[in-house]
Design a binder for these strands. Structure first.
Lengths: 155, 155
DNA sequence: TTACTTGCAAATCGTTTGCGATATA
DNA sequence: TATATCGCAAACGATTTGCAAGTAA
């Protein structure tokens, strides 16, 4: 779980990094998996997750952990903020100067040692604004297709 | 999944709300469940989740959802920010004036309609600062005790 | 050659949900 | 009494992980 980096630049690692970097969107692991699969049909979702973790530990990509949502990944490592659509969950870049934490803010944090912050904007993306219900479809589970349960409980 | 509110103030609902409001910490559903159980030994974790959802939809509490993290809940509904310990994950209040989004920031968001923001501070809580590995113990699964797998895979 | 990585699939675990029973209004 | 809500336990789903086989260095 604690990685320092990686040892080898494997084919899958390289392609995952390339694909992510040539995107200006911020895909989820599954979306990226689907993309990479076009080049490496047999690559597993686990491999994608493992590499995204390693690459982000190495500071070569960014993990975007934002409120109560699926994780997104960003090939851009320069500091910047993000806006998330509250309807479809998509993410876009917001380039503005980094917030400078005032003395007052730091004091408000009391006995916490503040080392950073995470600022995320919430809004409506152009597609959702236009009334589309979801700009991005809900995808089905990757795991063994389990079906809707229909149980009998005996208390 | 889309709730407007609730119809009845049940005993469990009332106690969950009371307990959460008298805390100045920001417990997870499981932590709150453990607390409430002292008064209602047979209350289920599902009931706690259901009520926290309903109460937050009704605007009576706040859900603190940050990516890739366990959900925390806050009995305080007045707008304020939070600081999260990067080591143990605990959350504390940060009372400072709400950020006012500048024209420039809004322009930076491009074709997104910004309706709000989420700001969270990251840092070290006093306990973790003092070198303790974890200020809050890892708790075991609530679900049917499944044991470490030990499999044989055949490719 | 060797040990880092992969593909695969099962496991994890926070959270949700179906169902019959219970209790609120 | 009617039905919102509960307790229980199974299901869900994004992410992680064990293992044998593959491969970069």
């Amino acid at each position: 779980m604690y990685h320092i980096g990686f040892q080898r630049m494997t084919r899958q690692r390289k392609i995952i990094l390339e694909k992510l970097r040539e995107l200006d969107t911020h895909p989820t692991a599954e979306e990226l998996h689907a993309l990479v699969r076009r080049q490496l049909p047999r690559i597993g979702l686990g491999t994608v997750y493992r590499n995204l973790e390693l690459l982000s530990c190495a500071g070569m990509i960014q993990k975007l952990a934002t409120g109560g949502e699926v994780m997104h990944f960003d090939g851009e490592t320069k500091e910047h903020y993000h806006a998330r659509c509250v309807k479809c969950g998509c993410v876009r870049d917001v380039h503005m100067p980094q917030l400078s934490l005032s003395e007052k803010a730091l004091r408000a944090a009391g006995d916490f040692d503040i080392i950073g912050h995470r600022l995320e904007f919430l809004g409506l993306c152009p597609k959702c604004k236009r009334g589309k219900r979801r700009a991005r479809g809900k995808k089905k589970s990757v795991r063994t297709g389990r079906k809707k349960r229909k149980r009998k409980s005996k208390r």
